[in-house]
């Protein structure tokens, strides 16, 4: 029984960390319509920055800053944000396709950088030896993992509440206005390029937080953790849950991550021995199918974006809500 519970705690910790990254993507794609093909890069930047800033001295390699945990995780968030700022500034004025290609490129470039620059990022062997916060003080591993799950949930709730407030604020309306009709937003004196950049950077910082927590969870990070499949998994979670809906994003994460873990377990248990090498291959096909089939069959996800109506008063009292279906909906733009 305790084995099952401790596995559940392990599973939930992983899922909730990913859910934070999915919320970051939801701000970018769901609310602003920005395509991010390099989630793994921003996640990875947060993970590597945390472990290098807060980790031990590694002879001959970058490290030994020994920052306290909150500072290290903040450092990870900032590094992710700066990376997003650089990519965003170059591509902000361009067609959306370019951002898709450039962000995908960032992830490939970062992976090749951390894999090769051994003196900076540990190379293919990754960075080990991270001392998790308070681990020395809490002797019992189960208590510690419960406490860590608590920390992750607090972070998730913080991000969730912050984003819910944000999307209901005037800034949130501005994001959706830009997503739906950039020209109209510009006609109202808004600067779509600037606002998109802000949303992109903020979303990337949230992914950086998730990456930092992920590196804390495993006390280890390596190039294996930031392969492109991570980006596709996080997309699948958001697409299944419903772009534009934060609650849907979290539930989508649980469904897709549950499916991923379950399929891995089932393949390991039931697949013939000579198929074991292809477990990952089959799981990749599943993720690809989930993305394509959801987009075809249920493009707005299981929990579609709730259509919000501005409560601003017009000259004749409150503006009446439009009929459902007349409002254009999430994730679509031309």
């Amino acid at each position: 029984m305790i084995g099952l519970i401790s596995y559940l705690v392990f599973f939930l910790s992983g899922a909730m960390i990913l859910a934070i990254a999915v919320l970051g993507l939801n701000l970018q794609w769901g609310n602003t319509g920005i395509f991010n093909g390099g989630v793994a890069a921003f996640f990875g930047a947060g993970a590597y920055a945390l472990i290098i800033l807060g980790g031990p001295d590694r002879p001959g390699e970058l490290g030994g800053f020994s920052l306290s945990y909150p500072l290290a995780i903040l450092g990870g968030i900032i590094v992710s944000g700066v990376l997003a700022l650089v990519v965003g500034i170059v591509t902000a004025r361009l067609r959306h396709d370019y951002l898709a290609i450039a962000t995908f490129g960032v992830a490939i470039a970062l992976e090749s950088l951390v894999r090769n620059a051994e003196y900076l990022f540990g190379g293919a062997k990754g960075v080990r030896g991270f001392q998790r916060p308070l681990e020395a003080a809490i002797a019992d591993p189960f208590t510690y993992s419960l406490m860590f799950l608590g920390l992750v949930i607090v972070c998730l709730l913080g991000v969730y509440i912050g984003l819910e407030r944000l999307v209901r604020s005037p800034f949130g309306r501005l994001l959706r206005a830009i997503r739906e009709d950039e020209t109209a937003a510009r006609a109202l004196g808004k600067s779509p390029a600037n606002v998109r950049l802000q949303s992109f950077v903020l979303g990337a910082m949230i992914m950086g937080l998730a990456g930092g927590l992920y590196a804390t969870f495993y006390a280890f990070v390596s190039p294996q953790d930031i392969r492109p499949i991570l980006t596709f998994q996080i997309w699948a979670m958001l697409i299944v849950g419903g772009a534009g809906n934060n609650k849907g994003a979290i539930i989508g994460t649980l469904i897709v991550w549950g499916g991923w873990v379950a399929s891995g377990w089932a393949l390991a248990k039931f697949a013939p021995a000579d198929w074991q090498l292809y477990t990952g291959t089959i799981q990749y096909i599943l993720i690809g199918l989930v993305i394509v089939l959801t987009l075809l069959a249920r493009p707005r996800g299981l929990f579609p974006e709730e259509l919000t109506v501005s409560t601003a008063t017009g000259p004749d009292g409150p503006v009446k809500p439009p009929e459902r279906g007349t409002v254009s909906t999430g994730g679509q733009q031309s």
């Binding site: 898709a100 997309w235 987009l295 994730g331």
Partner: peptide
């Protein structure tokens, strides 16, 4: 849907 959905 839009072109970016096709990219996904």
């Amino acid at each position: 849907a839009g072109p970016l959905t096709m990219v996904f």
